[in-house]
Computed example of a mutant assay.
Amino acid sequence: MQIRVFDRECEIDDSRIDADAATISERVREYEAGERTTFDLEIEYPDGFTGDVMRAIERVPAGETRTYGEVAAALETAPVAVGQACGRNPIPVVVPCHRIVGADSLTGYAGGLELKRRLLEHEGASIPDEP
């Protein structure tokens, strides 16, 4: 399904969320309005490494970031593998891969760096400078 967040379209795989489209959209609107920092939805994680990374990402509180290296260290893997798994996240925004940043820059985001920056600003997170 397509969701609109901060005037940007974002594709999420709603089949991985145990809620109807109206509920998901409502939670996104509440997030945008600052009424919630988590989505409180039951999620079906992919099997394997991508699911492990998504679970780690979901534990990063709103207003905070972690680097790809920090997540990689916690999972005993390489930062590039974490970045690739973030890119495979089928439910961005809901599982907040925007909170995972490079050591000295924002770096990639499926919804585009402008949306990543906007989401982090909305949450009050420190944003690394662009190279």
Rank of each mutant, 00 (worst) to 15 (best):
75 L>F: 06
15 S>F: 00
101 V>Y: 03
104 D>V: 07
77 T>F: 08
89 N>C: 03
30 E>G: 00
114 E>A: 15
101 V>C: 07
72 A>C: 11
40 D>H: 08
81 A>P: 03
31 Y>K: 02
21 A>M: 02
8 R>W: 14
100 I>D: 06
50 T>N: 08
21 A>R: 07
47 D>K: 10
49 F>S: 09
100 I>T: 11
49 F>P: 11
42 E>L: 11
73 A>T: 05
96 P>D: 10
7 D>W: 07
16 R>E: 09
79 P>R: 11
59 R>L: 13
104 D>A: 11
46 P>W: 08
21 A>W: 05
13 D>N: 14
79 P>S: 10
23 T>I: 13
110 A>L: 10
64 E>V: 05
15 S>G: 05
67 T>V: 07
84 Q>C: 12
39 F>G: 12
107 T>E: 07
48 G>F: 02
73 A>R: 08
110 A>R: 11
93 V>C: 02
65 T>F: 05
106 L>A: 07
27 R>T: 00
76 E>Y: 02
91 I>M: 06
16 R>T: 13
94 V>N: 02
96 P>G: 11
76 E>L: 03
78 A>Y: 08
13 D>R: 13
61 P>C: 05
42 E>N: 04
39 F>I: 13
64 E>I: 04
102 G>C: 04
33 A>I: 01
22 A>P: 03
55 R>V: 08
102 G>R: 04
39 F>A: 09
98 H>S: 06
9 E>D: 13
61 P>D: 13
28 V>L: 00
43 I>W: 05
103 A>T: 15
18 D>T: 07
60 V>Q: 00
114 E>K: 12
87 G>L: 01
43 I>A: 12
19 A>V: 01
12 I>Y: 15
25 S>C: 07
34 G>L: 01
99 R>F: 10
71 V>W: 05
90 P>T: 11
7 D>K: 11
11 E>R: 12
53 V>E: 02
114 E>S: 15
63 G>P: 08
83 G>T: 09
64 E>C: 09
38 T>W: 03
24 I>H: 03
102 G>F: 09
53 V>C: 06
94 V>D: 01
112 G>M: 13
91 I>E: 03
31 Y>Q: 02
46 P>V: 10
14 D>H: 13
94 V>C: 00
18 D>Q: 14
22 A>Y: 09
66 R>I: 05
52 D>S: 13
109 Y>K: 05
110 A>S: 13
84 Q>D: 15
97 C>T: 08
92 P>V: 01
26 E>H: 14
74 A>K: 09
75 L>E: 00
103 A>K: 15
36 R>A: 12
69 G>P: 01
65 T>Q: 04
98 H>R: 03
13 D>C: 10
84 Q>H: 09
49 F>K: 09
100 I>Y: 06
108 G>I: 09
24 I>M: 09
47 D>L: 06
27 R>Y: 01
44 E>V: 15
15 S>K: 04
112 G>R: 08
62 A>H: 14
73 A>Y: 05
8 R>Q: 15
57 I>W: 06
78 A>L: 14
16 R>H: 14
107 T>N: 05
